[in-house]
Nucleic acid binder design. Structure first.
Lengths: 306, 306
DNA sequence: CATCCAGCATCAGCACAGCTTACGAATAAC
DNA sequence: GTTATTCGTAAGCTGTGCTGATGCTGGATG
C-alpha cells in the first residue's frame, strides 16, 4: 500500500524540481524529504528518482506515479468534502486567501453573508499575493483563495487545484494627462516613467509583459502594490500605471483612466476535489453573489474613460 | 488530510460490523482499531460511529465516508498498478488463490505459461476456499484469486474487488443408478443420502439450496470436499452428489452423470483498481488462455450425460 | 433478578517510524 | 582552485501507534 503522505512529497517534487524546495515548502528538512522519497521507492519497488547533476529528476515511472498521486489526493479531498457535507454541516475553520484589492472590495460583503448564514464557520482571511496562492492552497494553509490570471501572463493549469471563474474586469491605464487619440495607449507611454507593483508579483509581471508586447521595456521608477498609493503617485505626475477595474474605486483628481484591451479574470480556487465541501461551496456562492451585487449597484469606472 | 490506513479500518468495519472482527481480520488488537477509529473521527471532525447495544454502528456520515474510502483505495491501487507497469515491468511476488478443483485443472497450465513468459515473477499459489477469498484479496494476502458463484447462491458484489469472468460450466448430478426419465433429477434424489462438501463451503451451500428449490432438505450422509473422493463414494453406492464439470475429469466406473440446469461461473478476482497491474493482467490472460485451451482439447463430459 | 459474557473505551507502557542535526560527497558556478 | 548548492547517510530524539490490562455497558441465560 503506497503511503499518501509520501505521494504528496513526490507530487511537490514534480512541481518544484528539487528536494530542498519541497522541504522548504512543506516545512521539513531536506533530509526528511529525501528519506521519505527513498522509502517510497522501496515501497513502489521501482526507481522513481535519478540523480542528475547535483539535483534529481523523476524517472518515467516517477512521472506516472505523480499523475496518479494527483488522482489519489483529489479523491481523498473529495472524501473529506463528502464527510463534512454529510456530518458536520457548516462548521469549523475556513481559511480564505485574497489579494489586497479583493480583500477590500468583493470580500467583505461575501464574508458578512457567509458569517450570517453559517455562524458555525470560523472564518479567517489571509492577504496573500496571488503568486503564492497555489502553493498555500495545495499545502493546506488556505482552503479557498482568490486568484487571477491576466492576458499576457500564462496561467499554468495546476492539476492539484480546481477553480471557478468569478469575474472578468478590464485593465486601465492611469496617467496624469490623457493619451493621444488613435494611438496605442501603452505605446504612448513608451518614454514615460512607470509605477509598478513589487517585483515577483503578478501585478508587476503583467505590466512588463504588456509593455513588451507593445515593443518596449518600461522604465520602472516606482514600486507600489497598493493601488490607492499608485493612483496618488500618478495624480502627482510621477508616472503612469496599469490598474485593474477593482483597484480604482474612487480615483483621485487629476488621474485619467483609459480602458485597455487587457483583462484580468478573477477566480476562486480550492484544492482539487474540495468543490463539494459545503463550506467551500458556500464561500464560493457568497463570493459570486457579492460580485453580482457589486456589478449591479456600482457604476463602472469606464464612464470616466475615453 | 484523512489517513488512508484508518479509512481501510473503517471500510472493514462497515463490512464486518464489529471492531473485534476488524481487529481479528487485520491482525490487530481491538484496542488498536478502536483508537484508530477514534482518531479518524477526530480528523474528520464528525461522529462516524455510534454505540448501539454492545456494538457500534456507522452514522450516516460514516457510511458516506466508507463509500469514498472505497474510491480512495481503488485509486491508490490503480496508482500501484500504474507504477508497476511503468517501472518494474513484470517482476516481484504474485500470490494466487485457487479452489482445489481449479488448482488441479486450469491453474497448472496457466502457471507454466506465466512463468515462461515472465520469469521475473515469483509465483505463489495458495489453495483457499472461495468463501474466504474476498477477505484475503482485500486484505492483501492474495493478489489474484479464482472464485465462483453458483445459481441459487447470491453473489454479493464486493465494492473492494473487481473480477472478470473466466468460464461457465454446468453442474452434474452424480449417482450410482440413472435417474428416472422425465422427472427432475434433483427431486428424484429426495430420499437418497447426499454427499456434500464440508459445512461453510460454497459447495455445501449450493447443493443445499438446489435441494431446497426442489422442495426438500437433503439428508446429508457424508462430507467430502475433494471431488475424486466424492465420486468414489458415489460409485460405491453410498449416495448422490452435485459436482461441477471441472470436478469430473475422469469419473470412475459406475457413476452416472446427469447434466443439471444449474451452472457455476468462475471468475478471476483482484483488488479494485488492480486490473491495470501488469502482473495481474498477465495472470488473468494466462488463465483465460488455459481455459480456452482446455475447452478446445477436452471433450465435454456432457457426452456421457443423458 | 442475578449472573455471565461479548463488545468497546481508556490507560499505561513500549517500540518503531520518522524527524532533526551533523557530516560528507558530488557537481556547478565563479 | 574556491565556494555554494544539492543530495545522501549516520546518529540521536520524539511522537505516533501498538499491546496488554482494566473497567464499563448491554444483551443473553437460567
Amino acid at each position: 500500500m503506497l503511503d499518501v503522505r509520501k505521494l504528496r512529497l513526490l507530487r511537490e517534487l514534480a512541481r518544484r524540481g528539487t528536494i530542498a524546495a519541497v522541504a522548504e515548502a512543506l516545512a521539513y528538512t531536506a533530509s526528511a524529504v529525501s528519506q521519505q522519497l527513498s522509502a517510497l521507492e522501496r515501497e513502489a519497488g521501482v526507481a522513481l528518482l535519478a540523480r542528475s547533476g547535483r539535483g534529481v529528476v523523476l524517472t518515467p515511472a516517477g512521472l506516472v506515479l505523480v499523475e496518479h498521486a494527483e488522482d489519489v489526493l483529489a479523491v481523498l479531498e473529495r472524501a473529506s468534502a463528502a464527510v463534512a457535507e454529510a456530518g458536520g454541516g457548516l462548521a469549523g475553520p475556513l481559511r480564505i486567501g485574497a489579494f489586497p484589492t479583493a480583500a477590500r472590495t468583493i470580500l467583505p460583503a461575501a464574508l458578512v453573508e457567509l458569517a450570517r448564514r453559517h455562524p458555525g464557520l470560523e472564518l479567517r482571511v489571509d492577504e496573500v499575493d496571488p503568486a503564492e496562492v497555489p502553493d498555500a492552497v495545495r499545502g493546506g494553509e488556505l482552503d479557498v483563495a482568490l486568484v487571477h490570471d491576466y492576458d499576457f501572463v500564462p496561467q499554468q493549469r495546476d492539476p492539484g487545484l480546481d477553480s471557478e471563474p468569478l469575474l472578468t474586469e478590464a485593465m486601465f491605464l492611469a496617467s496624469a494627462r490623457p493619451p493621444e487619440v488613435g494611438v496605442d495607449p501603452i505605446g504612448w507611454c513608451r518614454d514615460l516613467p512607470w509605477i509598478l507593483g513589487r517585483p515577483d508579483t503578478l501585478c508587476h509581471l503583467v505590466a512588463v509583459r504588456a509593455c513588451q508586447v507593445a515593443g518596449f521595456t518600461p522604465r520602472v521608477r516606482h514600486h507600489a502594490d497598493d493601488f490607492g498609493t499608485v493612483l496618488a503617485l500618478v495624480a502627482a505626475g510621477l508616472g503612469v500605471a496599469m490598474v485593474p477595474e477593482l483597484g480604482v474605486g474612487d480615483p483621485p483628481e487629476g488621474v485619467v483612466l483609459t480602458r485597455l484591451p487587457v483583462h484580468r479574470r478573477t477566480q476562486a480556487a480550492y484544492r482539487a476535489g474540495a468543490g463539494g465541501h459545503p463550506a467551500v461551496a458556500a464561500c464560493v456562492a457568497a463570493l459570486r453573489s457579492s460580485v453580482a451585487a457589486r456589478q449591479s449597484s456600482h457604476a463602472s469606472p469606464s464612464a470616466r474613460s475615453r
